[in-house]
């Protein structure tokens, strides 16, 4: 069973695919983050409102998150697309996605009727619109997997980390782990 064998003992053909999968995971996750941040960054007032719609954070914190989240998403997304500080960016992106999953699940559990506000908007549903919690959760869970893969097998092909010599050289992997994280 191939799945039980560590990556280093996979057949060569599969080993060659791992960095490309990382690249795809980086591009998908980074692309979604950039789009999500870009659609929110022009309307800080609505971004704050969308955070408040979850009724989870106290007012001042919700406001700070509303102002900071769009630019955080864009910066982390750009780092992932470029493959720069791949492992750290993937960890941050994964934690973000886990926070979104927790927020949406909590809104669902409390019976709120909101839009996730992921790609702009103020968190309120349009007239006649039903909450789409399940699909939002599945999408974000998929992105958590992308983040986990990119954090596990950084930096993948076409990454600035490799071009700048920032990725872990295979011979003294342990030395550099602390630098990256």
């Amino acid at each position: 069973m191939a799945a039980d064998i560590p990556a280093s003992r996979w057949p060569l053909s599969a080993q060659g695919a791992v960095p490309w999968v990382t690249t795809i995971a980086r591009l998908v996750l980074g692309g979604v983050l950039i789009a999500a941040g870009w659609l929110k960054i022009g309307t800080p007032a609505l971004s704050v409102q969308a955070v408040k719609a979850y009724e989870l954070l106290p007012g001042g914190v919700a406001t700070a998150v509303g102002y900071g989240l769009p630019i955080l998403e864009i910066v982390v997304g750009a780092l992932l697309v470029l493959g720069l500080l791949t492992r750290a960016s993937a960890v941050v992106a994964g934690l973000l996605m886990l926070a979104f999953v927790a927020g949406i699940a909590s809104a669902w559990a409390r019976g709120l009727r909101i839009d996730c506000g992921c790609f702009g908007g103020d968190g309120t549903l349009a007239a006649g619109q039903e909450p789409a919690y399940l699909s939002e959760l599945l999408r974000d869970a998929g992105l958590v997997l992308c983040a986990a893969w990119a954090a596990w097998f950084p930096p993948g092909r076409l990454a600035l980390d490799s071009a700048l010599g920032l990725s872990d050289p295979p011979d003294h992997h342990d030395d550099n782990e602390e630098n990256v994280s």
Partner: peptide, 9 residues
Amino acid sequence: AIGLGSWYA
């Protein structure tokens, strides 16, 4: 960049 962006927002 994140700090400046938040401040600008």
